[in-house]
């Protein structure tokens, strides 16, 4: 059984097969798809969702979820752009990031101390924070008066956009965190069996709070990088992002029930969404077809996943 090729096959997130298929398809059928310029384009486009997805993966492996990420995107972007005239760019950005982390802390503490489901807690946070953003901005968009801010969003290093580098570097770091550190191992243990993790001496509550802070940080960072791309922020920024992020993470093989998931899978999920959007856009497919295709792929991936899991389980469980 251990030699069965199916085992190894099942360890590669199935989303990568779909990603390769999508790339191959668009390379043939979409004229300007297969080009370095377009690929860097995709990387920038996906980096926003991608950054949040890195944090969301950990929270979901923990068996929790964070629906407030879209609102945090708007909050962090508004703070970073709105405060930079008074504080300067770097302090304003730090305030934006700090707000994301602080909100994550709050989410985590409420989930830990009250035992209320993360879905409900962060649903409340999602609405509340969005309201705060509208209050703070007075429903106005903010524009950055300092060109250095927008320049950063457009800059590139060695021909690759800086924002893409940021995303790729953080992906590698998160992959290492999840596979090689105690924090990562604890995340799987807490999501896999919370009681057993507790009995093994893991401080489950603190661990979960740390991960909510992590996803808050990533959401805030995504909001700030997004605002550097536009040189502006709007109070509606990041609307529905939580759904795209969760879609990407689930496409990547992370289970809503916790304990299962990988950063590499999430990267595959994020890229698949990016490639589909970009490729269909190049083929001039209307945007709502993109949604239909995306929905179909989401369900198809889950079906394949369930199949493979059932077969692997049935193989040894007598």
């Amino acid at each position: 059984m251990t030699k069965s090729p199916l085992r190894h096959l099942s360890r590669i997130p199935p989303i990568w097969m779909i990603l390769i298929a999508c790339v191959a398809f668009f390379s043939v059928f979409a004229d300007s798809f297969f080009a370095i310029g377009n690929f860097t384009n995709i990387l920038i486009q996906t980096s926003t969702i991608g950054l949040i997805a890195l944090g969301m993966t950990v929270v979901m492996i923990n068996g929790n979820i964070d629906l407030s990420v879209g609102a945090v995107v708007a909050l962090a972007a508004s703070l970073a752009v709105g405060l930079q005239a008074d504080l300067g760019i770097v302090p304003a950005v730090l305030v934006g990031l700090g707000a994301g982390v602080a909100l994550g802390f709050l989410n985590g503490m409420v989930v830990w101390k009250t035992g209320v489901d993360a879905f409900i807690v962060t649903l409340g946070a999602m609405m509340g924070v969005r309201g705060l953003v509208f209050l703070y901005t007075g429903e106005q968009s903010f524009f950055s008066m300092n060109f250095a801010y927008a320049d950063f969003g457009m800059s590139s290093i060695a021909g690759v956009p800086t924002l893409a580098w940021v995303f790729l570097a953080l992906t590698v770091i998160m992959h290492v965190v999840m596979t090689r550190t105690t924090h990562g191992r604890n995340a799987y243990a807490v999501g896999g069996n919370r009681e057993a993790a507790e009995n093994a001496g893991i401080r489950v509550g603190r661990h979960m709070v740390a991960n909510f802070m992590l996803v808050g940080f990533f959401a805030a960072l995504a909001g700030i990088t997004l605002s550097t791309q536009m040189g502006a922020s709007t109070p509606n920024l990041g609307t529905n992002y939580e759904l795209w992020v969760i879609t990407a993470v689930v496409l990547g093989g992370t289970k809503l029930t916790g304990g299962v998931g990988t950063i590499l899978g999430t990267l595959g999920g994020v890229l698949t969404i990016g490639v589909l959007r970009n490729g269909m856009n190049l083929m001039q497919v209307p945007a709502f077809y993109v949604l239909v295709v995306m929905g179909a792929i989401l369900i198809a991936v889950l079906l394949v996943d369930a199949r493979v899991n059932r077969r692997v389980a049935g193989e040894v469980k007598l």
Binding site: T182, R185, Y188, G192, G201
Partner: peptide
Amino acid sequence: KEQGLVLGMSCRDNMSLSQLGEVSRVGWL
């Protein structure tokens, strides 16, 4: 099953779960 083991985890990872502090340095496994 309910209180002692993380069922989906490997034997090795389950065994080291109670002593991750001892098998790591500054969080590095």
